[in-house]
């Protein structure tokens, strides 16, 4: 898994609440058997009319050249609905490394963390401030310090992450590495409950 440390970047604002995983990656694109290439279908039906790449929807933010960056900022309850990890893969594959919202659906949050995509929960007030910024403004995310900073004003917001997950992300470890090393304890547990 890719390591995450500090990210300074512009961001893409999506001030919409309850963005579900069917919007992030519609079910018809879940037929692949690898983890790659989902980025081109990210928000497919919000990006294109009639599922046609030659007909981009002009009012959708990903089709605005002025918005760019490795940070996606979205309204509350981001990632609700289906457990499809393809949603996290699509966001990552598109080029985002961080998603900021005031509230994440649980399964999405886990899926993101398991793929080195950092979900950051901020206050509603801070989120609204981010939506007011201009497209040229940049944010700095420090996982080590657990802060998001608006570079222009220097304003900082702290975020929570449990120390186990933080270590995993900083070092690029995943849970499987940990669990495999636990197999002896797991076998002992199985004998106890048998």
């Amino acid at each position: 898994m890719d390591k995450i440390t500090t990210i300074q970047s512009r961001f893409v604002p999506m001030p919409i609440e309850n963005i579900d995983t069917d919007q992030i990656i519609p079910a018809r694109f879940l037929k692949a058997t690898t983890r790659d290439g989902f980025g081109k279908n990210l928000f497919r039906d919000w990006r294109y009319s009639n599922d046609d790449e030659s007909q981009p929807k002009v009012d959708f933010v990903l089709n605005h050249k002025i918005y760019s960056g490795e940070i996606l900022v979205a309204g509350k309850n981001f990632g609700c609905g289906s457990s499809r990890e393809h949603a996290a893969w699509a966001i990552k594959d598109y080029g985002f490394k961080v998603v900021i919202s005031s509230f994440f659906a649980d399964i999405f949050k886990n899926n993101a963390l398991n793929n080195g995509l950092l979900p950051i929960t901020v206050s509603d007030a801070f989120l609204q401030q981010l939506f007011q910024l201009s497209p040229a403004d940049t944010l700095t995310v420090s996982l080590e310090a657990q802060t998001v900073c608006i570079d222009k004003s220097g304003q900082k917001e702290s975020f929570e992450i449990n120390s186990y997950k933080k270590t995993c992300l900083l070092k690029g470890y995943d849970d499987i590495d940990y669990l495999i090393n636990m197999r002896t304890s797991i076998e002992q547990f199985e004998q106890q409950i048998a």
Binding site: S83, H86, I107, N110, I180
Partner: peptide, 15 residues
Amino acid sequence: GIGTSEVEMVFASQC
């Protein structure tokens, strides 16, 4: 419900 990375974890360790 779990994601695919978690499916892999359960395959690997039943945990």
